[in-house]
Design a protein around this nucleic acid. Structure first.
Lengths: 147, 147
DNA sequence: ATGGATGCAAACTGTTTGCACTACT
DNA sequence: AGTAGTGCAAACAGTTTGCATCCAT
């Protein structure tokens, strides 16, 4: 029988969020940690309405307002990322310890993740040419399977 | 005094649209051509609400419904492209005879356009690796001017 | 105890839809 | 003549806001 040495991801992101909230002088409410925890239990992408229904089903007492608020905080401390797959609905995914990656959107909503270093080269070039500080990007390819 | 040989862009896109409508058995209504014409008078990006107000100010009798409908047709025949700069509002720009380009979004809504061939290399690689047919992409960098 | 955070519902905003009327084919 | 397309207004969906209450500090 060995002691659990490694912290779980859940614990790590909790710590990061806690530290972030402290630094920003925001209150550490149970709702905020419950939401973070729920999100980190989700595999893949999610939208706010599903998260809301998901939590309601588990008998959490949360409001959409708090979800939207908390999502902003989590974006700010980089624990999640926002995506615009469709037209008018935001999708999110957790981003802690997951390698930066981009997406290919296929028909029927299938999503492939990939990572190509050349995007960072483009970024560097743009920063040099236009004298910019680029802090983020979003890249989507749209296509379909052959045959 | 020489004859005007070159067709204006306005005339060319009109022809393209006309041909598209014929092929798809859609009617050639004056509204559709008026909207196309208005769009091709716009420099840079626009959203539907501004286009609507713009046309209303010029005493066109158009409805939002028709604008949304026509925009779909113009997207379909590739005379315009859709962008998602912000969260929940679609921006568009004309795309006839304008080189494919991507965007850098700076603070205060400033937008820089650029074109980097490496994005096509990435595309090719993805098509090969995943056996896909990629027909489009969207790429945005987000940043700010240095100093 | 104080005021930041919450839940709830109403308001907002961009987009879509239903319907009676118009006009392209 | 027939019906796709139109304008208008109402409906819709995702998000934001106002407010009374709650609870982390």
């Amino acid at each position: 029988m060995t002691m659990e040495i490694e912290k779980s991801n859940q614990t790590k992101v909790r710590d990061i969020f806690s530290e972030y909230l402290a630094e920003k002088r925001h209150r550490k409410t149970p709702e905020r940690f419950a939401i973070l925890s729920e999100i980190y239990d989700i595999e893949g992408h999610f939208d706010i309405e599903s998260l809301y229904k998901n939590m309601k089903n588990k008998n959490y007492r949360v409001s959409r307002a708090t979800l939207y608020n908390t999502i902003e905080l989590l974006l700010d401390c980089k624990l999640i990322r926002r995506h615009q797959f469709g037209q008018n609905i935001s999708f999110f995914e957790k981003s802690f310890e997951f390698k930066q990656h981009d997406h290919i959107i296929l028909d029927q909503g299938e999503v492939i993740e990939f990572c190509d270093p050349r995007i960072q080269h483009i970024r560097k070039t743009l920063e040099d040419i236009f004298d910019l500080e680029i802090n983020d990007h979003s890249l989507y390819f749209y296509g379909k399977r052959k045959s």
